[in-house]
Design a protein around this nucleic acid. Structure first.
Length: 427
RNA sequence: GGAGAGAUGGCCGAGCGGUUGAAGGCGCACGCUUGGAAAGCGUGUAUAGGGGAAACUCUAUCGAGGGUUCGAAUCCCUCUCUCUCCGCCA
């Protein structure tokens, strides 16, 4: 959500900037709706002022025993007009709010202009993809062969785009979660939170999933509960409608949650394996900062996510998303892509974004330093990391000729073993 | 699931259908006082939107949404949340 007066005052410049991300702002619609809305407001508010003044008058006169029924009749009629005008004003207000809420964030000046994901710019690489002396397998072959990943039974008990992990596979998922949380809390200074996995509409509105992206979410029938699509939603909304002490920022939180996505419209994409699932596990990093801190903190947050991959010895690269590929609420996003030898490609494993005040404005998250006036905080988040995709990366990168997976050193205490071996039969 | 109580400003807390945007207190800010501090005294202290160059002014907001009324924090209805007791349960 943009600041209304800033938006109104810089319409042309904003429209031009939004065009770089492929969003066409209808200036005429905005201007006329805004004018209509203000006219309606002025009219109804004028009448209300009249009614308020009259009511006070009537009160005084009645105390003196004066008959006021004529004046009351007059105010009653004004009241009826107010009801009508209020309705009209509320409709205009709602249309205007929806229009404003559907406008994406402005990309930061450092974001490269581009038309599609092909225009994303690589920032750096880390690690060398391993040279195999055998043909590395994709996890969708290796997992079922090792009997640590079971997609058929997952389809039976839930459906497509779900997974069942067995034995060492389940243990690997759990080890990764604990490893990530421990590194972020002990080494990177984040505070762990465990939020609800169901959230209400207000929270989804606060982080920008609603009203535009309802079709990407799962909703529980007959309730206002939605399955959380990312911990970003519950964790960012922790401080909804609160004012944070500016001297104590940044606040750095990390959270493990499962994430649920309908994946409507992604039919046919990544249908093999567990790259794209209706449910996946994720450890999320969330920061609340002052405006002057947020870009430094974005670099640090992205570095914290990359550190997990370094500790696991998984090669990766960082790209900055171009204007067209940057998400709706984000001003700047880095994607971290991990090397997957089974697919001979780098694949997204983390997405780290600075939303500036875009979410905070919707969610009412303010900050105040000393005597200063309260202003909107900046919010950031990033995957630290997507656990399922890290599982894939570990299995594919560290697979051995004998059909086992040699665990990265850092993970062994969590795994309680130095390698993951085939399960034999499912039991 | 059943029965009851409650929700008012940053916090505590008053509130008769009529200058109550809201007493009083605490906190906070500024000033006076002081060698300095404490105490004391004084002044100020919400958010959003509209109008205005500004001073300022209008509108809305007492959990949320409706209703009654000339007028609602106060009356009525619905919902949400919190607390207490009973039942059930990991």
């Amino acid at each position: 959500m943009h600041d209304l007066s800033f938006f109104r005052g810089n319409l042309e410049a904003i429209a031009a900037r939004l065009a770089t991300r492929g969003f066409e702002l209808n200036l005429e619609e905005f201007r006329s709706l805004d004018a209509e809305r203000r006219a309606a407001l002025a009219e109804t508010e004028g009448l209300k002022a009249l009614r308020n003044a009259e009511s006070v008058e009537i009160g005084k006169l009645r105390k003196q025993g004066v008959d006021t029924s004529a004046r009351q009749q007059k105010v009653r009629e004004a009241g009826e007009r107010i009801t009508l005008l209020d309705q009209k004003a509320a409709e205009l207000e709602e249309r205007f709010r929806l229009l404003l809420a559907s406008v994406p964030n402005l990309p930061h000046e450092s974001v490269p202009a581009g038309r599609s994901e092909r225009d994303n710019v690589e920032i750096h690489r880390w690690g060398e993809p391993r040279q195999f002396d055998f043909e590395p397998k994709a996890h969708w072959d290796l997992g079922p062969e090792m009997k640590i990943l079971d997609l058929e039974r997952a389809a039976k008990i839930a459906g497509a785009r779900f997974a069942v992990y067995w034995g060492g596979g389940a243990r690997l998922e759990r080890a990764l979660i604990n490893f990530m949380l421990d590194v972020h809390t002990r080494e990177h200074g984040y505070t762990e939170v465990l939020p609800p996995f169901l959230v209400n509409s207000a929270s989804l509105y606060g982080t920008g999933q609603l009203p535009k992206f309802a079709q990407d979410l799962f909703k529980l029938e007959g309730t206002d509960f939605w399955l959380t699509p990312t911990a970003e939603v519950p964790v960012t909304n922790l401080f909804r409608d609160e004012t944070l002490d500016g001297d104590r920022l940044p606040i750095k939180l990390c959270a493990y949650t499962p994430c649920f996505r309908s994946e409507a419209g992604s039919y046919g994409r990544d249908v093999r394996g567990i790259i794209r699932q209706h449910q996946f596990q994720k450890v999320e990093l969330v920061k609340f900062t002052r405006a002057d801190q947020s870009y430094d903190e974005l670099e640090k947050l992205t570095g914290d996510a990359e550190d997990i991959l370094k500790r696991l010895g998984l090669p990766f690269r960082r790209v900055v998303l171009c204007t067209a590929d940057t998400g709706f609420s984000s001003a700047k996003t880095y994607d971290i892509e991990v090397w997957l030898p089974g697919q001979n490609a780098y694949r997204e494993i983390s997405s780290c974004s600075n939303f500036e005040a875009f979410q905070a404005r919707r969610a009412g998250i303010r900050t105040k330093s000393g005597k200063g006036k309260a202003e909107f905080a900046h919010t950031l988040n990033g995957s630290g990391l997507a656990v399922g995709r890290t599982w894939v990366a570990v299995v594919e990168n560290f697979q051995q000729a004998d059909g086992s997976v040699l665990a990265p050193e850092a993970l062994r205490p969590y795994l309680g073993a130095e390698r993951i071996t085939p399960q034999g039969e499912y039991r």
